[in-house]
Nucleic acid binder design. Structure first.
Lengths: 261, 261
DNA sequence: TTCGGATATTGATCCAAATCAACGAAATCA
DNA sequence: TGATTTCGTTGATTTGGATCAATATCCGAA
């Protein structure tokens, strides 16, 4: 079977018009990911040969919890939100920003996804057949090491998130969230929220109504939010209220590959 | 420096009388762990050569969050509880039962622990120098693959736990906890709780008072708890209330190596 | 541009869960 | 054995957060 035939079958399988073979311009972006940067050129080439790239509009489901991981996915442009459901309830677990992979654990173990994923913007996603990824893992030690680093980092990110949920009140979670993202503030201490408040509330495990009230409460604690503009007016006061901790919020450098919003 | 000298230094470092070089009887138990079972004999031997074993009374702190991972630890007998603290609050994150390892992620990445660990019973713990573990990872592909499997499983366990926290009420968490452990019930549907209610409450992220009330509430839903004896009187009724889900509670087989209580 | 829908805010109310307080039952120890 | 402490339960009360309802605001499409 030629690779062209394989591609054709894949096209039919996923039943979508807008599919491309790996665009040359995308390759360097992928290559620079920590997960792939140390890989043998030969392994990387063979991995990329079987891959393809797809463009999606916003609000498209990419994966559904319970499904089998046919592909390791890489967000090249746009953004993907990982969420989970149970008994009619739904919660945002994380958001993946370019350029990074998601659902690596399911791919490596070849077990069903624990989370669903949908685009939150017009997005460009690369799909690497899971079989090829596992094959690359078996043949390339550098890649194996990178997979371990990535998985360990993902694990630690969820543990930190779990501590955040267990040990803090919702307003404390909000305050620390704002501090974690203060890195992109300008010299006046302003930055854009870059996420809908509805989505943010879900990620922080609170209702949109309570998020509004939390924002109002924080106005007396060194931060003012107007629309999507966050303005840190008194970083010390905010820190005093939020009590950020490295072992929960992570050092800036350790901000994870499977990025936690 | 001879290995005897190194051992002596280690003895001084940890400042505890009750230290042994690897007891021969412990080796097979370790060897059978999924993490080590596929390892080259040679690598395994060199790993075990640098290891030692220690006995602890209950309530002893083995690791403290923020510390550097000098050793990969393996619980051989007894039990270890992983917990985390922030701003005077404390929460039980997980319990590790024999025979399994913990804090593998910190060891592999050589970054500070995110959780503290203390014995919850008289325990026997093996300590493998982190450097040796990372060395073994670099030289033994089977081991590398096993590490990935273990890390992926740990990651998924925390994700499931996070879903449990986010999507369920405290009584729902309790009900599903009881179902998850129903595997060890006898034919009458009875089993022992095997954990103090105080600790269980902390793990379920609720107060002891509320746990008591939750238990009472569940008496009308197919389960009766008397002291430490759990009696599933109506499994269907309990399941109807708890709505257990594979993607949160895991299939029995997938019960994790870094065991979630 | 206006319309219609999603999104955000505010207030009122309700509910789950934490806290406070008291007490009985085990377990631990002298 | 009795004394002391820890653990578990129950009741009363408070509080954080959810829900319900009403309005305001933003945004995208015709």
């Amino acid at each position: 079977m030629t690779s062209q035939q394989i591609l054709t079958i894949r096209l039919i399988n996923i039943n979508c018009e807008n599919v491309y073979i790996m665009r040359t311009a995308d390759i360097p972006k992928i290559r620079e990911l920590p997960l792939f940067s140390d890989m043998d050129q030969q392994t990387f080439d063979s991995l990329v040969r079987g891959a393809y790239v797809q463009n999606f509009p916003p609000q498209v489901d990419l994966i559904t919890e319970g499904d089998s991981p046919d592909f390791l996915q890489v967000v090249i442009e746009g953004g993907v939100e990982l969420f989970a459901s149970w008994d009619g309830r739904e919660t945002v677990m994380a958001t993946v920003h370019p350029v990074s992979t998601f659902i690596l654990a399911a791919t490596m173990k070849d077990v069903p996804y624990l989370m669903s994923g949908r685009t939150i913007a017009k997005s460009r996603v690369m799909l690497l057949p899971s079989r090829d990824v596992r094959l690359a893992f078996d043949t390339d030690n550098s890649f194996a090491r990178a997979v371990v680093t990535e998985l360990a980092e993902c694990y630690r990110a969820v543990v930190r998130n779990s501590k955040d949920l267990r040990l803090r009140s919702s307003v404390e979670r909000l305050a620390n969230y704002l501090i974690r993202h203060a890195g992109r503030a300008d010299r006046d201490g302003r930055y854009d929220l870059n996420i809908g408040k509805r989505r943010l509330a879900s990620y922080l495990n609170m209702t949109p109504e309570n998020l509004s009230r939390g924002i109002k409460l924080l106005q007396g604690n060194g931060v003012r939010i107007d629309g999507s503009c966050v303005h840190i007016t008194d970083a010390d006061a905010l820190a005093k209220f939020a009590k950020p901790a490295t072992l929960i919020d992570g050092p800036a450098e350790e901000m994870s590959p499977e990025q936690w919003i």
